[in-house]
């Protein structure tokens, strides 16, 4: 009974270990089918290792596709090029860190500036505005306490007369909010005019 064909392939490659190799050889010597199969494998290998073109024929030796001479030529040529490339790429002697020029791509630099500006606005902006608002409200609240309301104009006049013009106090009620109209008459003046015209 013939062995598996795969064993013949392994034998052809010289990779069949010892006890099996001898057994297979003994079988093949008596079996024409296995001999034929082995010869097929041999022809496949020979066909693959044959010269690629007729021009190559003269220069080739043995079972190698490339002649040893040409292989050696290629080897020294490639080494020469390789050596040159490696030397060209060898890094220059190290430079001190602070003297080393730093190159940043323009988009990266712009992005960095934008990030810094955004962070500055985020941290500094609201705090500053908040501080100003708090200050204004606190000052007004503390001074206005206990004063006669402006709406009671006659009361104010009486108060001023009772002070005998010795004090120079004029109190004007400020609007409820501080959102002044940027153009035109300030509402603070109009409120005072309106109060005065209606007073008598």
């Amino acid at each position: 009974m013939c062995p598996d064909r795969q064993l013949l392939s392994v034998y052809h490659d010289g990779e069949l270990p010892s006890p099996w190799r001898e057994k297979l050889e003994a079988h093949v010597s008596e079996c024409s089918t296995c001999q034929e199969r082995l010869s097929v494998y041999n022809r496949v290998s020979q066909g693959l290792l044959a010269p690629q073109t007729q021009a190559d024929e003269g220069a080739l030796t043995g079972r190698l596709m490339v002649s040893n001479d040409r292989l050696e030529e290629a080897k020294s040529r490639v080494w020469k090029n390789l050596y040159r490339s490696i030397n060209a790429r060898t890094p220059a002697p190290s430079v001190q860190v602070w003297r080393r020029p730093l190159t940043i791509p323009v988009p990266a630099a712009v992005a960095a500036v934008l990030v810094v500006a955004f962070l500055a606005a985020l941290i500094g902006g609201p705090l500053t505005v908040q501080k100003q608002t708090d200050q204004a409200i606190a000052r007004i609240g503390s001074q206005v306490q206990g004063v006669v309301p402006v709406s009671d104009m006659s009361g104010v006049l009486k108060y001023l007369q009772s002070q005998d013009n010795s004090t120079d106090i004029v109190i004007i009620r400020l609007p409820e909010n501080n959102k002044f109209v940027p153009s035109g008459e300030p509402s603070i003046i109009r409120a005072a005019d309106y109060t005065r015209s209606n007073a008598p």
């Binding site: 690629q52 190698l64 596709m65 490339v66 040409r70 292989l71 290629a74 080897k75 040529r77 490639v78 080494w79 090029n81 390789l82 490339s85 490696i86």
Partner: peptide, 28 residues
């Protein structure tokens, strides 16, 4: 290793120049 690499590369590419270039690139 060069002889092995060169033969393999030459067989696949069928060009000595290409085989040389590929071997050089790999070693580099």
């Amino acid at each position: 290793v060069f002889p092995i690499l060169f033969r393999v590369a030459y067989r696949i590419t069928a060009s000595e120049d290409a085989a040389e270039d590929l071997c050089q690139d790999a070693f580099f």
